[in-house]
């Protein structure tokens, strides 16, 4: 008889120094045009409001920004993830207009952001 396949389990601890966040911005009066610089400035101002100058100086990168859907991918050091995320959560307005950051995905691997299992659409045959 053949031996059962043995599995090897790999656990990566602190495999990445970064976390990647996929976010989108919801505005009260629908879409408006943003440049990538404005978008980053908005996030920095949110950080500054909650954590002051030290928070505003925290390094993070706007890797990708899609001005038509206002979706973006951020890269941030693991240490600053909680700070950046909470600053995004508590941002409530932009130029006196109500807005909200929706965090779509957070992952230590950039590749994971290429697909979202929560948005999978199943065919009729699978769901029924």
């Amino acid at each position: 008889m053949e031996e059962p396949t043995t599995f090897e389990r790999h656990v990566y601890k602190n495999a990445s120094v970064y976390h990647y966040m996929k976010i989108s911005l919801d505005l009260e009066n629908g879409k408006r045009s943003f440049s990538d610089a404005q978008f980053k400035q908005l996030i920095i101002s949110a950080l500054k409001e909650l954590y002051g100058e030290v928070g505003a100086a925290f390094p993070f990168d706007l890797l990708k920004f899609d001005p038509s859907s206002l979706k973006a991918i951020l890269r941030v050091y693991n240490k600053g993830l909680v700070k950046l995320w909470s600053a995004l959560t508590l941002l409530g307005s932009y130029q006196n207009e109500a807005c909200a950051f929706r965090v779509i995905q957070v992952s230590p691997f950039l590749l994971a952001l290429s697909g979202n299992s929560r948005e999978l659409q199943f065919g009729e045959s699978l769901t029924s």
Partner: peptide, 13 residues
């Protein structure tokens, strides 16, 4: 509705 935040955002908060 714009004052709602996702559950993971709140866990982080």
């Amino acid at each position: 509705s714009l004052e709602m935040r996702g559950p993971y955002d709140i866990a982080n908060l």
